[in-house]
């Protein structure tokens, strides 16, 4: 680096390498280890051969066999998947319609509409859970699949909306204007231009909704009935009794779902960060 002359004196530029700010690297790495160590432990113990969750007795996949043939686990998992698929379809359709039309609402309070969509993210889940329970009783519903479906759809909508919106913002209006110039009317525009271009956003939105619904425990535990127990509600009951090899396997399977879905959502389409 060359020397500078400042006020008649020689001056050597001071170089700050921001990449090696003191203390930042070690704490950052420690935080990442903190995030992943418990997951690593869970992964390792899922392959334990022994009958106890934490006493290592060699490598085995026998507990996967146990979990995949356990009727209660399979049944509750099926309930969870059915619920997640139903809520995802409903949430994505409504989020899509909302994203494509909310601009038209500007004068009718789109800020309010957006706040309403974000509300489930801010209200403490326990409060929303007990409030929803009180509400469905009030409107004459009972805890069960329908109640679960309505509640899950509601809290999935904001998650379905995020990627659909950021995709829509990324497309830009020229594309649609060109389509209109070339004579496309509303319906062909929707089917031949809007929807195909939105596919990555729709896929991400659907995956995120699916995971959010599959993962929900607190709201589901208040709205489940005997015939509609979801996997997390059942899993919670198991976990309360302490660690077990079967839970290790279920945990690893759910962890894998999160890794696959997140990687797919964040790496597949070049995500444009949107600030809302």
């Amino acid at each position: 680096m060359s020397e500078l002359i400042v006020d008649g004196r020689k001056r050597v530029p001071r170089i700050l390498d921001i990449r090696s700010f003191p203390g930042v690297g070690p704490v950052a790495v420690a935080a990442l280890v903190f995030l992943y160590l418990p997951m690593l432990v869970t992964t390792v113990y899922a392959f334990n051969a022994g009958d106890q969750a934490l006493v290592w007795e060699g490598f085995s996949t026998q507990w996967f066999g146990y979990v995949l043939t356990n009727h209660t686990i399979i049944d509750t998992a099926i309930t969870s998947v059915q619920l997640a698929v139903a809520a995802t379809v409903a949430a994505v359709v409504m989020a899509l319609a909302f994203a494509l039309s909310v601009d038209g609402l500007r004068r009718r309070g789109s800020a309010l509409a957006n706040a309403l969509m974000a509300a489930p993210l801010i209200i403490p889940e326990v409060v929303l859970a007990v409030a929803t329970l009180a509400f469905i009783r009030m409107i004459g519903l009972q805890p069960g699949f329908l109640s679960l479906f309505l509640a899950h759809t509601t809290f999935c909508i904001p998650f379905a909306l995020m990627p659909i919106r950021s995709r829509l913002d990324a497309i830009g209006r020229e594309v649609f204007e060109a389509g209109a110039d070339l004579g496309a009317t509303a319906a062909p525009m929707l089917w031949r231009i809007t929807l195909p271009l939105l596919v990555p956003g729709l896929v991400s939105g659907a995956l995120l909704s699916f995971v959010i619904s599959m993962d929900d425990f607190i709201i589901s535990s208040f709205l489940s009935s005997a015939g509609s127990t979801t996997l997390p509600v059942y899993l919670y009951g198991l976990i309360r009794r302490g660690p077990s090899p079967a839970i290790n396997v279920v945990a690893l399977l759910l962890l894998t779902l999160a890794v696959v879905v997140t990687s797919f959502t964040y790496l597949a389409p070049k995500k444009k960060r949107s600030e809302s």
Binding site: Y36, D215, F217, P232, L235, I239, A251, L254, L255, T262
Partner: peptide, 8 residues
Amino acid sequence: PFWTNLLV
């Protein structure tokens, strides 16, 4: 971790 099941 954000998208991993809370119970897990």
